[in-house]
Amino acid sequence: MSTPSNTDPVVLVRDVYKEFRKGETVIPVLAGMDLELLPGDYLAMMGPSGSGKSTLLNLIAGLDKPTSGSVIVCGQDLGKTSQSALAKWRSRHVGFIFQMYNLIPVLTAYENVELPLTLTPLSRKQRVEQVKTALEIVGLGDRMDHYPRQLSGGQEQRVSIARAIATDPTLIVADEPTGDLDAKSGNEILELMHRLNEEFHKTIIMVTHDPSAAARAKRTLTMADGRLVSDIQNSTATGTTA
């Protein structure tokens, strides 16, 4: 696997089709999708339900494979990669932020963030440092021993972000990260994501239904019926709401 340089695209989606089968019925979800993301990009994907944005996100994150076309992320052609190699690839290159946080309820904040690090060759001491750093970045250095049920929704999502960045991945994918949060907490999460992009130069793809959230990204892609409708550079993208 080649390591992309600063000018190589992190994500290269070419003529991608994706169909799902339900018995005899074939449901087309993506119909000839093209997309390119450079290092440091922050892309928001919008569109009505069923437009294919989450499917595209799953393909880019290596959670699913296209029916045809190619999805090359961090130099890896994901459509041609085996499931076991994909699992290893995800652990090295992708950080996940989910709408429902998806923390493991029986593990503490510390243990949740440490979980992806157990897949790396880091020593225990190095893991401790990485976890502490990630939790400090999201402002939860004092909540390490808390279980998810002892945290607010916003805090849970911050733990989820700490887990996503703990392995220092190239790409962060976020599926409606503010969808289950109140406005204040949602704003905090968006600020944090902006910081990850600006300060830590993380390439981020975010699926959202919220135009104000999309406006915080550098670029907004709108989809409908599995096709690209618009791809706009957000010149006013900032970390805080106006």
């Binding site: 959670l63 076991s84 699992a87 290893k88 995800r90 090295r92 996940f96 998806n102 992806p116 897949l119």
Partner: peptide, 9 residues
């Protein structure tokens, strides 16, 4: 979630 994070089958 575990599989998304990269844990093998």
């Amino acid at each position: 979630t575990l599989r998304a994070l990269g844990f093998a089958r």
